[in-house]
Nucleic acid binder design. Structure first.
Lengths: 203, 203
DNA sequence: GTCTATACTCTGATAGAC
DNA sequence: GTCTATCAGAGTATAGAC
């Protein structure tokens, strides 16, 4: 009974394959836009076989969201209160931008969920995420009090980093359509965001 | 036959009511997540009556997107090449933030569409939108050449304005959950973005 | 113009053979 | 563990009365 925790190696591998396929489909079409047929096709399994590994469509989606949140918050967790303030914030920006570049599907999965009111993530957001932001906002405030970075609303500063980095994954189609051929959006964004936060944070 | 252009006053009013209801539902659940039942209920009409005014679900969605794009680009169009550079950009930021505050549903409708690869807007984005951005990027570049604002990638500067302002509408749930009670997100964002762009644009 | 009734398709989930 | 067959429900759209 692989309800909660698959045991054998084959089960592990198949669960993995399913989640990988599901990430593709859910991130591209949203929860309701995705179909089990699409996921099964992409995973190379039959639909009933899919439902042997996960009890429902909802369960697959939930599994993706759960594993996502941790990855998503890691870069912020890594912001070190002992480090150099400007360098720490800018390193956070770079890590977050890399995350958008390397895991755009995860970013879009998350965006789809929030955009529609976070029906399956409300608790996690009001809980873990809000707590982490509060904690890091305190660190930022301390740095501001010490005059080591410019005084700004620390929470909105964090929002700005989320907005500016996730934009490149979530609005990828628009970014590429506007830039046209021959551009590397993430490379250009890296340069631009470096300049932006260097200017913004300077005390 | 109200296929393309309703004629009588009642038809006008009912079309309006339907689009208003549809905006609510599509922006909250995405295209596939929305159902005609929900829209009909909200509009106070029967489902077949809905389909008397619009030939299909797709057509309702299309009508919303078409009327949206213009409204969405107006603030950028209004950026005046003859005005004071810093003031013009900052006025654009404010107009765009107001748009997010006053029309969050439109913002989310747009975000849903782009997020899922813009299947119904690709042409408009690669066309009108890209052209307008190219034109305004030229204005920005001129201002930079004249040393009146800091030198930055003009297109990514525009992206940053989109990302930072739309974030407050699109991720509203997250913003409010993180801020907690007793906050006015848009007022705070207004202050923050003023500071950000003042620092960023200073030559 | 608007409604009731209904046709038809899609999709999530289950039964049961192998 | 995996498949074929199938059910049940939801959802878009149409027919046809009024």
């Amino acid at each position: 009974m692989p309800m909660t925790r698959p045991k054998t190696r084959i089960q592990q591998r198949n669960s993995e394959t399913i989640l990988e396929a599901a990430l593709d489909v859910f991130s591209a079409h949203g929860f309701r836009g995705a179909t089990l047929d699409q996921i099964a096709d992409l995973a190379g399994l039959s639909k009933p076989n899919l439902l042997y590994y996960f009890p429902s469509k909802e369960a697959i989606h939930q599994a993706l969201l759960t594993r996502l949140l941790d990855t998503w918050l890691d870069p912020l967790r890594d912001m070190n209160p002992q480090g150099d303030p400007v360098a720490e914030v800018m390193a956070y920006v770079r890590r977050k931008l890399q995350l958008s570049r390397d895991y755009p599907r995860e970013s879009r999965l998350f965006a789809n969920e929030i955009l529609q009111g976070a029906p399956r993530m409300r608790d996690a957001i009001a809980g873990d995420l809000a707590a982490l932001v509060a904690q890091k906002a305190q660190v930022l405030t301390q740095w501001m009090d010490q005059g080591r970075i410019a005084r700004l609303d620390p929470v909105h500063l964090i929002f700005s980093i989320w907005a500016l980095t996730q934009h490149y994954a979530d609005f990828d189609v628009q970014v590429r359509a506007v830039l046209g051929e021959g551009h590397d959006p993430y490379a250009e964004a890296g340069v631009f965001l470096d300049q932006l936060y260097a200017r913004l944070l300077a005390p």
